[in-house]
């Protein structure tokens, strides 16, 4: 039932996935590490990947899926090339994070948790990023911090990420 679009049978991706799983074979405790590395490899965690991990580590698919859906870090859907992480910590929240989200939505056309059809951006909401002095803040691709964002600055910011 692996719903892999890439014909995963003996596919290169599967081999690489197995390399991630191998050191943890039969070790349920390695679940989060394996999921993290697998997502780094594939970009997200589709069902066939979760099934392979469940069988490799000897845990139920239910457990794998429960962990994947518990942590905001893991994604069940393909991610865009650039990740827009809008901070929803207390300071950002009161300084207009909701307006920021709305403005981003107006520009890229997707809701938090979604990816643009051209796979350019994934929009997500994260907990406090520790940049309260810059509220409302957003991190792009986990490294570029943009602070005190005004709605009209958004197109300019996004232009930097093709």
């Amino acid at each position: 039932m692996a719903e892999c679009a890439c014909n995963c049978g003996e596919d290169e991706l599967t081999k690489q996935l197995d390399k991630i799983i191998d050191p943890y074979r039969g070790q349920p405790g390695g679940l989060i590490q394996v999921l993290t590395k697998s997502q780094e490899l594939i970009g997200y965690l589709p069902k066939w990947v979760q099934v392979r991990i469940a069988e490799g580590l000897g845990v139920s698919l239910q457990e794998v899926y429960g962990v994947v859906t518990f942590y905001a870090f893991f994604s069940l859907i393909p991610r865009g090339r650039h990740k827009l992480s809008v901070c929803a910590g207390t300071a950002c929240y009161v300084k207009g994070m909701k307006t920021l989200i709305k403005s981003l939505r107006d520009v890229i056309g997707v809701k938090p948790g979604q990816t643009t059809p051209d796979s350019r951006f994934t929009l997500e909401i994260v907990r406090c990023i520790g940049a309260c002095g810059l509220a409302p803040a957003m991190i792009v691709d986990g490294k570029d911090v943009h602070g005190r964002i005004e709605p009209e600055q958004i197109p300019e910011i996004l232009e930097q990420y093709a």
Binding site: K47, Q50, S60, L61, Q62, E63, V64, Y65, G66, T69, F70
Partner: peptide, 25 residues
């Protein structure tokens, strides 16, 4: 289901208000 029967057909999915006890997917 998990500890007595070791079937593990159910788990908690998502978190907070959205938590759902169900089979995977």
């Amino acid at each position: 289901c998990t500890n007595v029967q070791t079937v593990q057909a159910l788990a908690a999915e998502n978190r907070g208000f959205d938590t759902l006890i169900a089979p995977a997917f």
